[in-house]
Design a binder for these strands. Sequence first.
DNA 1: ACCTCCTATGAAAACGTTTACGTTCCGCGC
DNA 2: GCGCGGAACGTAAACGTTTTCATAGGAGGT
Lengths: 339, 339
Amino acid sequence: MSVTIKDVARMANVSVASVSRALNGHGGVTAETQKRIREVATRLRYVPHNAARSLITRRTQTIGALLPDLHGAFFSELIRGIDLAARSRGLYLLVSSSHGDATEAAIALRAMQGRVDGLLVMSPHADEAFLDENLPVVLPTVLINSHVRSERHASLDVDDFGGAHAMTEHLLGLGRKRIVFIAGPEVNHDVQERIRGYRDALAAAGLGERAAILQGDFTEESGYHAGKQALAMVPRPDAIFAANDMMAIGCLSALAEAKVRTPDDIAVAGFDDIPMARYVSPPLTTVRIRIAELGEAALQRLAAMIEAPDDAAPEPHVVSTEIVVRASCGGGDTVRRRA
Amino acid sequence: MSVTIKDVARMANVSVASVSRALNGHGGVTAETQKRIREVATRLRYVPHNAARSLITRRTQTIGALLPDLHGAFFSELIRGIDLAARSRGLYLLVSSSHGDATEAAIALRAMQGRVDGLLVMSPHADEAFLDENLPVVLPTVLINSHVRSERHASLDVDDFGGAHAMTEHLLGLGRKRIVFIAGPEVNHDVQERIRGYRDALAAAGLGERAAILQGDFTEESGYHAGKQALAMVPRPDAIFAANDMMAIGCLSALAEAKVRTPDDIAVAGFDDIPMARYVSPPLTTVRIRIAELGEAALQRLAAMIEAPDDAAPEPHVVSTEIVVRASCGGGDTVRRRA
DNA sequence: ACCTCCTATGAAAACGTTTACGTTCCGCGC
DNA sequence: GCGCGGAACGTAAACGTTTTCATAGGAGGT
């Protein structure tokens, strides 16, 4: 059995109340006894029991992160950003991921109850109804990339539309006229926004009727297949814009296999700027999302909500993207920042 | 204020004890009242308060992971493996990372107290003295890659020696005679083991005096510089074996820049098999660590310790590695499994 | 009809804290 | 000398559970 506050109190000849006060620096205790208590505490290696503490304090110094998955560079970066910001505030991170369906996600949500001071939620199941059903009213929550607009929760979204729009414009600016888009899973809201950005930019250039969308599912393989399909199109496109980097990379393989030159014959662009994007050949032009920043911003917002729960929720924050120009579309290595 | 077990008890006209029994399925409660209690509970959206529960139960259903950092593919995969195994056991994951020094790590360790049922520790500061000082005696703990042999903790290590040994043998088998090794940070125990494997294999081939080690620090940049140094050596090496993939990749750039052909002039091999390794050109021959498996195994071991705390600690588990042959050393794409 | 035993239930203790409220003691002003 | 206020400290309640123990009541055997 581990040593409790009572043991410390006994050894220091004081009451538990004084121990608590001394150790938490709440005052009302002589400098001398405080010193004595401190010494006894360290000698006994006393560590307060957090469950007991948070039972009465109603604070856990922990925030929960509900994620759909931990696969790939995206989540790795996201967690890193969250963890960084959490750590600087002395908060701990309870992660829960890979819930296939809404029921599992609901269970995970319940399990967080009483264990966290706030919640970061990024889940495909996290629509408004789900949250209403499963979230205690009082728990501060920040929605990441859910594209749910709710009075009750703060939210943080990536500027998918702006990023795709800018990339399409970039390709048009390079003189590409026949730009094919490789989409991701249909249910994915990010994908919808990226498609919208792509369409919108084409329309703005008076090329709205040229929009052509191939289906993909975010895997390298689907990108490869979409690449093959693009090659079979007549007239053949002069640029391919994939909804994420992995598909763009698959696409590059398809082109290389067909001896089509990139970017001379067909330019290729991706979305995400995963670490690998720099290293494929040719290096991939892509839309960078500052993922770690996204995580940091989300945690910062959450921390603010926890500090001052009654503040009006500020308007949804949108995380900007930027275009990273590499060889796969022609042009040198540069980064253009978007507001 | 959220709804407690008392509210449920009142609404169902039973005592809190019965509610507890009914909801936890402990029996001793009529099927009929159990049903009534269940209904009231869901109607009120009752969720047990975990802090209170674990205060009395002394179980938190949570395991803590103490990691040095969250950067890069390695930790991403490790967490994924841990999370996967944890989830299948209904355990949650409290992560704590990026502690620069031992003091920070100690603070993190204390903060876990009373919040976790067991600990997964992978930290450069986690030597025996540190653990003795900061770890409560009773907390089940699994050390990952710490290369600390202790009676008190289980440990799990990657077979760095075997991997490096096998890769060196592989290169020798391809007829390479002058193999240079690029090392990582000196303090890193994995690096020491990899060096040992390299030296040992050379010695076994009667080429012990040919061992040549260049300094690196695991970054791509350091690999690039080491590559330059290798090119300047006379006689020029015919193979470079880097202690991790990122350095190998940096090395590839240096060779490409110098118009040296890979693998014809100089073969290059890495360690880790990060996802990127497949995509660089030429694709990198490397030693694969099944990182996710490492995480899973660690969690499994920990779970076993939590279930049966008094079992004798089984002997340290070593996670095997395998050689992944890609173009950077010549030869086709194959994977050779090592025991 | 009575004793026994078992089952459903409730009362209350316990877990380890924090904190509101008392109590004691001392110094000080009248 | 006496009351008063404040500082230091102790007592005990409270947080929301689980679990032990007691109790009541009913079934079943004699």
